[in-house]
Structures are given as structure tokens and as C-alpha cells.
Amino acid sequence: MPHYHLHLYNSAETHDAEGRDFPDLAAAKEEAIRSSRDLMAEHVKAGEAVDLDHRIDVADDSGKVLASIGFRELITIKDSRVGLG
């Protein structure tokens, strides 16, 4: 199975030196999406700001970034007061 690294870029950079095996890139991206949502949820629960500029990069063993998952693309916020009205 191919090996991918999920590097987290939020308030600090968390480099994933160890990485893990995934069946394919799609599965690695799915895990990156799940992890991003999980981290955003943690921030909401802790009463901290969710920074939509944060992201998780999926890289191969050589360090080449194959996909970048931005938090912005993973969250929908509804608010009638700032809606299109």
C-alpha cells in the first residue's frame, strides 16, 4: 500500500514524519478531510476561533504535496443575518 503523510498547517505546523499506509490517494484525502473537520470541531467545542486558512497537505514519501485540503472548503455556515436576504 502507498504511504502518505498528512501535514497539518494551523496555528503551528505539525509535520507528519511517520505517515501511514492508505489504499490510494483518495483514501488519504478522505482521512485528511475527516481530520480537518475533527480539528475544527475541537476548536468550536473549546470556544476558540476556527481559522478557515488552515489546511492539511497530503504528501508522498519524497515530500511532494499531492493534495491540499483547506478547512474553508469543508464547512458551511448558515446565518440568516448575513444571508442574501
Partner: peptide, 22 residues
């Protein structure tokens, strides 16, 4: 153990485990 297994034991994602270890 690897991060993925710690994640399965702690009910976290491996990215979250990595962040906690950091």
C-alpha cells in the same frame, strides 16, 4: 505503536494524535 494505532486507542484521528504528541 504507530500514530494510527494510538489514534484507534484514543478515538482520535492520526493527525490529531500527531498534534497531541507535538
Amino acid at each position: 505503536v504507530v500514530q494510527e494505532q494510538l489514534a484507534d486507542a484514543a478515538a482520535l484521528t492520526s493527525v490529531h494524535v500527531n498534534r497531541c504528541l507535538r
